[in-house]
Design a binder for these strands. Structure first.
Lengths: 152, 152
DNA sequence: ATCATTGCAAAGTTTTTGCACCTGC
DNA sequence: GCAGGTGCAAAAACTTTGCAATGAT
C-alpha cells in the first residue's frame, strides 16, 4: 500500500480510525482528480471498475457514505433521484463552486465567479448558525434552480 | 368544485392550462396550510388519504412533479433518499426559510432570521446568474449541513 | 364530447442488508 | 490474529409507466 494522490484525504480517513483500503484510496484519488464534477455512485463504480475490476457497487455506496459522514465529501441531489458526490472543497479553494440546475433537463452548471460578498457572507452565516443551533457545520449546498436557455 | 384555501396557487395552475381536480386542490391546500414543513411524497399521501380515501400514490407523485415544473413547489433532498416538497414562498414572505440539516440523523431546522444582507445578496446573485447563463431562475435551495448537538 | 387526469398493478431505479470471505494494521 | 472491510446476491425503498376508467371544462 503506497501513498497516492489525495493523501491529505487519506490521512484524514486514518485519523478517523478507518482503514485505508485499496477501494477507498481509489475512490478518494478519483474524486480528488475531478474536483469540479458531481458523480453518481454508478458513475464512480464504472470508473473504478477500470482499475479494480472486482470492486462492487456496494463498496462504492459504503465508502461514499463513510466519506460523507467524515466530512470529506459533499452529497447532494439535483432532482433526478440520484445522489451526487464531490470532494468538499474549502470555501477558499479555487475548486469551490455552487450550482445552477435546470428543473426540466437536469443540466448542472457550476459557478465560482462569486460575487465578492458571497463567500464572506456564507462564513458569517455559518458562524451564526453554528452558535444558534449548536451545530458543527461541515458543508453547504447552494443551488439555484430554474429553466435553462435550451428548455425555454 | 368550490374555491378553497390556496386559491392563489389554484389559479396559477389553471393559468398553466392544467385542470383543477380534487386531488390537486387537496395537495395544494395541504401544503399551503403547512408552509414551513418539508413533506415526502409518502407523508403527503397518508395525509391526503384522510380526505380522499381513494387517492393513489401515483397521483401524488404526478401532481408534485407538475407543481414543481410550474414553480409552485420547491423540491429538495437532505440525503435520506426521499424527495421533499414545500410551497415556494417568495423571498419577501415570512414563510421563506433556509435549511440546516444534520448529516447523521437527518434532522431539519428551518431558519428565517436571515442576516440582513442574506436576502439582498441572493437577489443580486440571481440577477447576475440569470444574465450570465440565460436561466430563468425560479427558486433556490440553501442548505447548511453539519452535525447537530444530539449527534455529537 | 373530449381530452386530461386518475388509480391500480407492475416495472424500473437506486440504495441497503445479510453473510461468508478477505485484508490492513 | 482480529476487527473491520469487501463482494455477491437478495431485498428494500422510492419513483415511474401502461392502461382502462373517470372527471373537468
Amino acid at each position: 500500500m503506497k501513498e497516492i494522490k489525495g493523501f491529505k484525504w487519506c490521512n484524514k480517513l486514518k485519523q478517523c480510525g478507518c482503514k485505508l483500503t485499496l477501494p477507498r484510496q481509489g475512490i478518494i484519488t478519483f474524486l480528488t482528480k475531478n474536483p469540479v464534477k458531481h458523480f453518481t455512485a454508478d458513475e464512480i463504480y464504472f470508473e473504478l471498475k477500470k482499475k479494480f475490476p472486482n470492486i462492487g457497487l456496494t463498496t462504492i455506496y459504503r465508502t461514499l457514505e463513510l466519506l460523507v459522514q467524515n466530512g470529506l465529501l459533499s452529497k447532494f441531489e439535483i432532482g433526478d433521484g440520484k445522489s451526487r458526490y464531490e470532494i468538499s472543497a474549502d470555501t477558499t479553494s479555487a475548486d469551490h463552486h455552487h450550482h445552477l440546475t435546470c428543473i426540466k433537463c437536469g443540466k448542472i452548471i457550476n459557478y465560482n465567479n462569486f460575487i465578492e460578498e458571497e463567500i464572506d457572507l456564507l462564513k458569517k452565516i455559518e458562524v451564526s448558525l453554528s452558535k444558534q443551533h449548536k451545530f458543527k457545520i461541515t458543508n453547504h449546498v447552494i443551488q439555484f434552480q430554474g429553466i435553462c436557455h435550451d428548455c425555454k
